[in-house]
Amino acid sequence: MNRKILIMGGSYFIGKSIAETFSQFGDDVYVLNRGSRPLHDSRIKELVCDREDQEQLKKILNDHHFEVVIDVSATNKKHLQYLIESLHTDRLASFIFISSSAVYDVENLSIPYKVSDPLGENSYWGDYGTNKIEAETYLKTQLTNSQIIILRPPYVYGENNYAQRESFIFDHLVHHQPIIIPNQGDTLLQFIYTHDLAKICLDLSLKKLDHLSIYNVGNKKPLSIKEWILCLSEVAKREPIFKEFDYLKHGYKIRDFFPFHDYDNVLEINIDFDETLFIEGAQIAFDWYQKTPIEFKKNVRKNEEEIINKYF
């Protein structure tokens, strides 16, 4: 008998990959979201609801009993609380929560950050990280008869990525525009391909695990900023034009002109999985970029122009 699966936030990027993966496996997949994007997949059923409206959430979930729930869109404790209080849990075998590497207090830790490391405020991520910590803390006390799985990915990449990261660089490469990077460009970034994360969710949902299991999930090898851009330039078949910039000296923040925070975001990975080579995932991301219109952030474009004109 096919399992009944609920994915919270399953219409785009990570959630879309997870929905496709479970559906291809043969599960009966439902996604719950606000219905702002069409699904384009007749195999997947959509429940339209604002998850922050608890009354509406309870009403729409009242007639459903799920074996597996994967929560991609929860960003705080309230999101999880409303959902869990609205679920029938009598058949629930696994609850998978997509958390984040932003839960690590990186200023007081050394890389790679371990699952056993204490959690704390991450100054680069602010409320996003502390809200994820509160959500994890709440979840750990719930669902005593189900297995809880918490996944902490670093940066997720791939097709349908609404965060303007690889697409931001592709756009500069294709249009022969200079790419402003922090001095040296040796900050370490760690990634995981969106379908690898989806496959991990599927594989774990099929296993008998402890009541609580927490995993850092990402590629084993991090990339420096320059290495990352060079990989993207290889699939785009364009040479990057690097402009190294001492942004602190001139009173800028790195996010004024670049899509990542300037710290080594490197996890100790405590799960084995078949890792997609970064160059292969990047090629798929580039193919998606080429056929997808993207409106890039105007303030970042303005900052770039200002920096180039003033300092180069």
Rank of each mutant, 00 (worst) to 15 (best):
H172M: 14
I181K: 07
E159W: 08
L173Y: 10
D171L: 10
P182V: 08
Q177D: 10
P153H: 11
N183K: 15
V156D: 08
P182H: 11
I169K: 00
N183T: 15
A163N: 13
N161K: 06
D171V: 09
E166V: 11
Q177W: 07
G185I: 08
H175F: 10
I180D: 03
I180R: 04
A163T: 12
G158E: 02
I180W: 07
H175L: 13
I169E: 00
V174D: 11
L151M: 07
I181N: 01
N161F: 04
Y157M: 03
Q164A: 09
R152Q: 12
P182L: 08
P153S: 02
G185N: 11
E166D: 13
Q164E: 13
Q184N: 14
Y157P: 03
V156P: 04
I181S: 07
H172W: 11
R152P: 02
S167M: 08
R152F: 07
Y155D: 10
Y155F: 15
V156Q: 07
D171I: 09
G185K: 06
Y155E: 09
F170E: 04
V156F: 04
E166S: 01
G158C: 00
I169R: 07
N161L: 12
Q177L: 14
F168H: 08
P154F: 01
D171S: 13
I181H: 06
P153V: 05
V156C: 06
I179Y: 06
P178Q: 10
D171N: 15
I180C: 04
R165P: 04
Y157D: 01
I169T: 04
G185P: 02
N183Y: 12
G158R: 03
I181F: 11
V156G: 03
I169M: 03
H172S: 11
Y162E: 14
N160W: 08
